[in-house]
């Protein structure tokens, strides 16, 4: 494992921990999109079906379980926790995420490596991950003001994607391995979705001002 891949994984882990910490410390989930969290839970469950069939490393297995568990915990808190659920911005979080699920599944039925149960769900999870952040970005845009932790959550997720791309470039040249085109295209789309957010995040950081997205 190279440093870019490890950094990417750590940013991914930190982003989820930031969310859990925010929910735990403030007993509030305002500004967080439940729909994005549900999509990520679905992404992890469908991608890590290989937990039952292949063993890669202890690191791999542990990280997969942590990703599934922590995302499930966030979804649970936002939906069922008696205090936390009251702060959920239900009326702002109206992105029709079932369309994303449907579209990604149809895409996976047509574009995949092999026509097997696992490969189709793997491709589905890659496509869905690329667009899963959309409900969160729409929610941030609607609420206008972004609190620090939610801003950092999206920032860390974007950093995770950026490091994964560096990881693919590194592996291409140093390990003579190429990333599958399904991952590459989806990864680029996913990273591009963050570009706009990064621009405003950088501006607010430079001006030392609160992050504010234009309507």
């Amino acid at each position: 494992m190279n440093i870019f891949r490890f950094a990417g994984d750590m940013f991914h882990l930190i982003s989820i921990l930031v969310l859990l910490l925010k929910i735990y410390a403030t007993k509030s989930c305002s500004g967080i999109s439940l729909k994005t969290q549900e999509l990520y839970a679905l992404v992890f469950v469908t991608r890590y079906l290989d937990l039952f069939t292949d063993f890669i490393s202890v690191y791999n297995t542990v990280m997969k379980l942590v990703f599934i568990g922590s995302t499930a915990a966030i979804v649970w808190c936002m939906q069922w926790h008696p205090v936390v659920k009251r702060s959920y911005d239900r009326e702002l979080d109206t992105f029709r995420h079932y369309f994303l699920v449907g579209a990604c599944f149809v895409l996976a039925l047509f574009l995949h490596e092999n026509f097997t149960f696992q490969e189709i769900f793997w491709a589905f999870s890659i496509y869905l991950e690329a667009v899963a952040i959309l409900p969160q970005l729409v929610l941030l845009q609607r609420s206008g003001n972004v609190d620090n932790l939610t801003g950092q959550y999206v920032f860390f997720l974007g950093a995770y994607r950026a490091f994964y791309i560096l990881n693919w470039i590194y592996r291409y040249f140093m390990e003579q391995r190429f990333s599958r085109w399904i991952s590459c295209i989806s990864g680029l789309v996913q990273t591009a979705l963050y570009a706009d957010f990064f621009y405003y995040y950088f501006l607010s950081w430079k001006n030392n001002a609160k992050l504010h997205l234009p309507a």
């Binding site: 997969k64 391995r177 599958r180």
Partner: peptide, 10 residues
């Protein structure tokens, strides 16, 4: 020769 990345990524 380049080989595809096996699914060892998260």
């Amino acid at each position: 020769k380049q080989d595809p990345i096996t699914k060892d990524e998260l």
